[in-house]
Computed example of a mutant assay.
Amino acid sequence: MTSAFRLTPLDNATKHHAHDYHQIVIGLEGHAEFEIEGLGGHVAPLSGCIVPADHIHYYSGIGNNRQLILDLPDDAPALCGSYREQVRLFDAPRFFTLDESLRSYLNFLVLELGQPRHAPGELLATAFLGCLHARLSMHLPPASSPRLDLAIIDRYIQSHLAQRLSVAELARLACLSEAHFSDCFRRQTGLSPYKYVLRERLSTARELLSTSCLPLSEVAARTGFANQSALSHAIRRAFDQTPNQLRQTARIQTAGLNALA
């Protein structure tokens, strides 16, 4: 997936989802409401929000509205190589307001996207992210990071796996701000907190499917997925198998081991 700009209104009905790419939403006309992993805020013209990959977010437009949305995979050119530092923008959700210079660039960006042959999207995305990063980097935590006690965090995650877990909860365990915790966590584990929790949910779900006859709805409830459909989708994406296929594979392996015993 490459970086992609979209000019689109948001439905007035509240919706929610998560996706495996980062996203920046900037208001052009009207208003919208967002809640990103428990962090709520308002998007008005010339203000916006940052939605890190795999963060569940609720959103709704208010009346007539139009948003500029930038979708960015983790391996987008604007986040790789010499621009890798810019990925820190997505360590935690946040809301921001554009200054005068960025407002001028936004006007150019919207006009350019309206041209039949506009500048390459990756070039526009890289320039915009560089400008945004320069302005928001003063609010990012310093590069030096304390060592996190992952054993405490793992125990907390496992004991709350059936519940909705936010980055803010985990950050409180380490007595750090959400942004600083996310930065430390990524440096120490190589994963964002959300992806780490998702991995634990999927690992436990896989074990339950392989070792029990629990219905899929119960497995979903025990591992923190909204419903069995959400669990099925996550399992297919992570393991390239359906839940039933995982169960069948486990049964075949168990039968083979019993035959050898």
Rank of each mutant, 00 (worst) to 15 (best):
A4L: 15
A4N: 11
F5W: 13
L7T: 10
P9K: 12
T14K: 12
H19W: 01
I24Q: 05
V25Y: 00
H31V: 07
H31K: 11
A32S: 12
G41S: 06
P45F: 01
L46A: 13
S47L: 03
S47V: 02
I50E: 00
P52G: 02
P52Y: 02
D54Y: 06
I56D: 04
I56Q: 09
H57K: 08
Y58Q: 09
Y59K: 06
Y59G: 00
G61M: 01
G63K: 09
R66F: 01
L68S: 04
L70C: 02
D74M: 04
D74I: 11
A78I: 03
L79S: 10
E85R: 14
R88E: 12
L89I: 05
F90L: 02
R94T: 01
F95N: 03
F96V: 07
T97I: 09
L98Q: 02
D99K: 15
S101T: 15
L102W: 05
Y105E: 14
N107F: 09
G114Y: 06
H118S: 15
A119S: 14
P120Q: 08
E122F: 13
L123H: 15
L124S: 07
A125V: 11
T126K: 15
F128H: 04
G130D: 07
L132T: 00
A134F: 03
R135A: 09
R135L: 08
S137P: 00
A143F: 03
S144C: 07
P146E: 07
L150Q: 04
D154A: 13
R155C: 13
H160I: 00
H160R: 14
L161A: 05
L161K: 06
Q163I: 00
R164P: 06
A168C: 07
L170R: 02
A171H: 14
A171P: 13
L173Q: 15
E178T: 15
S182D: 06
S182P: 13
D183V: 03
F185C: 10
R186I: 05
R186S: 11
R186G: 05
R187I: 01
P193S: 08
R199E: 03
S203H: 10
T204Q: 11
L209F: 12
S212P: 08
V219E: 02
A221E: 10
T223M: 13
N227W: 10
Q228P: 08
A230R: 11
S232H: 06
S232K: 08
A234H: 08
I235T: 01
R236T: 03
R236A: 04
A238E: 09
T242G: 06
N244W: 07
N244Q: 14
N244H: 13
Q248K: 13
Q248F: 11
T249C: 09
A250R: 08
Q253Y: 14
